[in-house]
């Protein structure tokens, strides 16, 4: 292959720009000093211990996991049938309906969180947790609509029709024939939705309460007031989880499943 020297150098610089800041975090997580230092003077795992024994981080992790899981499952439950209806049938105002379902993407996350806070928590006096769940649900729903919708575009609906002709009723055909054939789309939308909910901050900014602070928000306020390697250690653990997910995805669906 013919080489483009200038292009290669340029790309190496760009990739260094992407990777080096994260590498620095990884290194600082193992430093012995009380504040973050780079390069490090000594090597220790103690910051991981500090991070893992912190009750507020642990609670925040479980809350984030719970919220991301419930919000994602809700989005799948509501998004899959909607995506199916939008690609299977020729409906009046289909384009409008589709943009309606994607509309959470045009409302800034901080605004979604703020309006839910005012409406649900202040006006309706509902618990913060419900508001938080709804906010995350709204944010991840478009992922499901887009990715599952994309998978359905590829699906040959005559396969479903044949199933009907073979004595399968519409409900059963949806579960036995349609769902298995868009399963990779469902899995990637699940992962994308989960990761994005788990990482989301702006929606949760207003929707906090006693015992209800998500992990990224806890991490953020910690970063604002502290400058020790605990944050680096937590960052390393989060990155490790991401790498594991990416590895599994690469082995099963192909890494591009996460690039939507």
């Amino acid at each position: 292959m013919r080489r483009y020297k200038g292009l290669t150098i340029f790309s190496v610089i760009v990739f260094s720009f992407l990777i080096i800041p994260l590498v620095i975090i990884v290194v600082t997580a193992f430093g012995t000093e009380k504040t973050i230092a780079f390069p490090i003077k000594g090597f220790t795992f103690s910051w991981f211990q500090v991070a893992l024994s912190s009750k507020s981080f642990k609670n925040a992790f479980f809350l984030s996991f719970k919220v991301a899981m419930i919000a994602t499952l809700m989005a799948l439950l509501i998004g899959i049938p909607a995506a199916y209806a939008l690609s299977r049938y020729s409906l009046k105002g289909k384009k409008l309906l589709k943009s309606f379902f994607l509309s959470p993407t045009i409302v800034p996350g901080i605004v979604v969180g703020y309006s839910l806070f005012l409406f649900i928590v202040i006006k309706l006096k509902m618990p913060v947790f419900e508001g938080l769940l709804l906010g995350h649900f709204l944010v991840v729903l478009p992922y499901v609509i887009r990715v599952v919708g994309g998978a359905l575009e590829q699906f040959d609906f005559s396969i479903e029709e044949v199933a009907w002709s073979l004595g399968c009723n519409k409900w059963l055909a949806f579960f036995k024939i349609v769902l298995p054939n868009i399963s990779s789309g469902i899995i990637s939308s699940f992962l994308l939705a989960f990761i994005n909910s788990f990482n989301n901050i702006p929606v949760s900014m207003f929707l906090t309460g006693p015992g209800i602070v998500t992990l990224p928000n806890t991490l953020m306020s910690y970063v604002e007031y502290n400058y020790d390697p605990t944050v680096s250690a937590i960052s390393v653990m989060l990155m490790l989880a991401t790498i594991i997910i990416m590895f599994i995805v690469e082995k099963t669906l192909g890494i591009s499943a996460l690039a939507k």
């Binding site: 800041p21 994260l22 990482n199 989060l238 990416m246 591009s256």
Partner: peptide, 27 residues
């Protein structure tokens, strides 16, 4: 290279901002 590009996308934005505190901060 695609994996290298996707990885930051999936990393929490607190972590990614924190990285720049380490680079641009007084220390």
């Amino acid at each position: 290279l695609i994996a290298v590009s996707i990885f930051p996308m999936l990393t929490n934005s607190v972590v990614r901002s924190f990285a720049w505190i380490n680079i641009l901060g007084k220390n």
